[in-house]
Amino acid sequence: MSATELLIELTLMPLVAFVVGMMMVLMMRRIAAKLQRRVGPPFFQPLYDIVKLHSKRTQVSHGLIHDIGIVMAMGGYIAAETLLPVPGMNGIAEKGGIITLLYLMMIPSLGLALGVGQCANPNGSIGIARALTAMLAYDIPLVIVVFGVAYAAGTTNLIDIIATQQAGGFETWGVTQMPLLAIAGLIAMHASLGKQPFEIYIAPAEIATGPMVEMGGKYLGGLFVMQCFQLYTTAVLYVSLFLGGGTTWFDFLLKSFLVLAIPMSIAYLFPRYRTEDLLRLMWKWPVMLGLIGIAFVI
């Protein structure tokens, strides 16, 4: 591959991720609206929000780390997208692999945590403490799932994992080969999105949206962008691990949106768990399913 092609891929992948991510945010809000028998926001609402937030006159900063935190939150995901293969574009996926991707996906959270920390607002700090606790909760089943998939495929290279699944059609998809891991992965993925019933770290009525409490203008805008990336990354990762990736853009996007629609449809039917209940839930069912699933794989 020539350097120009690679450069184009590296530019396009985050861009596509952002656009698709905005549509995913829209889908999420529309699903919420439909479940509550509302009309929901117009098609371009996520874009309006992001443009408006970035064009606010007031940009309240609590310091340099506050700024850098937002840059890291956006930048980390932009980098992570290039490790996530999409139809026709592999980016630098073979240079990192899935473990690197998982760890790269923690960089935005770390950046956000630093930024929120400098806001000197205990609501934000409590939010981050809870977010990290939630990460401890859902990453354990997620890691089991990733281990299972990578072990079954014999590689940590996402391109190869996708290729093995596509080799035999639906028969060789992760979800048919390893259904238990797929279920555990779905639960872990739901928790990692931070939506109800797992939104312990946003908790608007309790800690005033936690990490976002002191974020306004482009700071909040950066987090909105980050949310687009987060939805996209989570969905695409799941599709790559269990649903055979995508051969064409059509089925790739279809699968991604569908798989994301499952937790979304569940989310808005529930209130919120307490932190320890989230931990208990995450450490019990998906872990159990995942371990049984791994036993089948090995």
């Binding site: 117009p42 929000d49 949206t209 976002m212 409490v213």
Partner: peptide, 11 residues
């Protein structure tokens, strides 16, 4: 496009 927010910074 109107939605409730929690803290004054966001609103």
């Amino acid at each position: 496009g109107i939605q409730p927010m929690v803290s004054p910074r966001q609103a």
